[in-house]
Design a protein around this nucleic acid. Structure first.
Lengths: 113, 113
DNA sequence: CGAGTATATGCTTGCAAGAGAATATATTTG
DNA sequence: CAAATATATTCTCTTGCAAGCATATACTCG
């Protein structure tokens, strides 16, 4: 699962998956939407392929990429036991605990994406 | 969210979170359970802190680390639209498509962890 | 204050990975 | 075969860790 997390850490790659969620796409299509140079797109797609997150099909000179959600499913399964932490009735208590001051040397930085 | 994915790509850090899911723990406790040198544990904890995945509380010379699930929640939200892909009635069709041979230059490697 | 315990930080090294530019490969068309 | 199109690969450079070891800081107790 480490590889999936690693690959998903790149915003462009999550963007690709988001686009492929709608329907299969050509490399050129993705390149255009992402505003990246084509070689970059190809390299991201290679990473996604090696992680089993997408699959390719050739059609002459073009290649259709389509989503392959299995690795996401694995992540989802890992996440499951945590999900109950914010779905349970303890949510209110947790929010209370989280609002309590504790010494945090590294305040979580606000991240744009 | 990129930072959370990045941090979770390390198996030891996911292990730490799994231990903290049960209850808050001391650094020494985590170090022992993970079988890592203590400085490594501290460094992993620092990464988790900076990603907002854990919080610390001091008690004299000891530090209690506890889970902070918010960033996981963000990942869960990103995952949500994909979840329906394997929960829907299309699951059977997708399994069929996935079983079809397509030209895959990089067959997904079997990963131990 | 001095010693012991719990935790964090600094430094070095090796490696994986991202950006960017250039180029290679494969396929279709004329 | 030549040219055009779609996509992949290679190279160089730079940056970001992670491992491992040594050391620093902080707190407690006698």
């Amino acid at each position: 699962m480490s590889e999936a997390f690693q690959v998903l850490a790149e915003p462009a790659r999550r963007q690709i998956l988001d686009l492929l969620r709608e329907r299969p796409r050509l490399v050129g299509e993705l390149t255009e939407r992402l505003g990246l140079p084509q070689p970059s797109t190809s390299k991201h797609l290679k990473a996604l392929r090696e992680a089993g997150l997408v699959r390719v099909g050739r059609d002459g000179t073009r290649r259709w990429y389509r989503l392959c959600p299995e690795p996401l499913r694995a992540i989802d399964r890992w996440l499951a036991p945590y999900r109950r932490m914010w779905e349970s009735s303890f949510a209110a208590l947790e929010r209370h605990l989280d609002s309590m001051p504790d010494d945090d040397d590294d305040p979580p930085a606000k991240e744009p994406t």
